[in-house]
């Protein structure tokens, strides 16, 4: 039973709201319903979904970005490339150009504008993509190398590895910056996990604005319900946002998480909530 790919991004704005708890729980639940599921950890700066998915990693491939290499015989230090570089990754000195590869975004402008053809393209490793299986789920995760500042190329490489069928559950990074946008932009549904606290509401607003700008349908999962106040739910009602699931504030869920165990395995109430979420996203996937 092969179906067109459906991509669900689990994002949040605020960090630590339960993205990974929801994304790993949802992936496992959908797989147990017979769906062909791939879980992708797009939080390449701190991937931790593997702790819960416990995958067998079968392969690890490098992610490389393009960097400029200068032929000092040809280079006249005219400065055109330094002028063209938006990232100040090139310094034009009297007799040569210095390249700072860790500042380079790999856009290729320097080689395009060089009048003497002194710039060629090299490659620099910035991370890896691990792939394998976790039970019935496919598993993919990106890892940004320590010391690297730009996660987006790793996210992009990771998303290129999504199989072209079944359901992909994308565990997004926190925040609303480039790697989050990269994760969300090609998704069919965004599930935003939020806590009903003032911080949670503030960051949910930012996430909702981002998702709306990208034109991706979205729903909200309220986590740690019972803490904070009612303003987050009021906001969702006012904005016409569907609340797909409500996870109660329960120490047992946190204890399972802290042991690296999926809460659904030890906590029947959490399992029921994730079951309802899985049913809700499946409905989104196949509108009647």
């Amino acid at each position: 039973m092969t179906r067109p790919l459906f991509r669900i991004a689990v994002a949040s704005g605020k960090g630590g709201t339960g993205k990974t708890t929801v994304a790993t729980g949802l992936a496992a639940e959908l797989a147990s319903r017979g769906e062909k599921v791939t879980y992708l950890d797009c939080d390449v700066e701190a991937p931790n979904g593997h702790i819960f998915m416990r995958p067998g990693i079968e392969e690890s491939r490098p992610v490389e970005v393009a960097v400029p290499l200068f032929d000092n015989e040809k280079c006249t230090a005219c400065g055109e490339c330094c002028e063209a570089c938006r990232y100040n990754a090139l310094a034009c000195l009297k007799d040569r150009v210095l390249a700072f590869h860790e500042l380079c975004h790999g856009c290729g402008a320097c080689s395009m504008v060089c009048p003497v053809g002194a710039v060629s393209e090299g490659a620099r490793k910035v991370g890896t993509i691990d792939s394998g299986t976790a039970g019935a789920c496919g598993f993919l995760q990106g890892n940004l190398s320590v010391g690297e500042a730009m996660p987006t190329p790793v996210v992009r490489a990771l998303l290129r590895r999504i199989p072209d069928e079944g359901i992909a559950v994308l565990d997004a990074p926190p925040g609303a910056s480039c790697p989050v946008v990269e994760t969300l932009r090609s998704s069919d549904l965004a599930v935003l996990v939020a806590e009903p606290t003032p911080f949670g509401l503030n960051d949910l607003r930012i996430a909702v604005e981002t998702v709306r700008k990208l034109g991706v349908p979205l729903g909200v999962v309220v986590n740690r319900s019972g803490t904070g106040d009612g303003r987050l739910v009021d906001y969702c009602e006012r904005e016409g946002l569907e609340i797909l699931a409500v996870i109660p504030d329960d120490r047992k869920i946190a204890e399972a998480y802290a042991r690296g165990v999926m809460p659904a395995h030890t906590h029947p109430e959490f399992a029921r909530v994730i079951g309802r979420l899985a049913a809700a996203v499946t409905r989104e996937k196949e509108p009647a």
């Binding site: 330094c82 570089c85 990232y87 100040n88 990754a89 090139l90 310094a91 034009c92 000195l93 210095l98 700072f100 500042l103």
Partner: peptide, 9 residues
């Protein structure tokens, strides 16, 4: 980015 490189130039 690259404020130091730009300033050095």
């Amino acid at each position: 980015s690259g404020a130091g490189v730009s300033a050095a130039e």
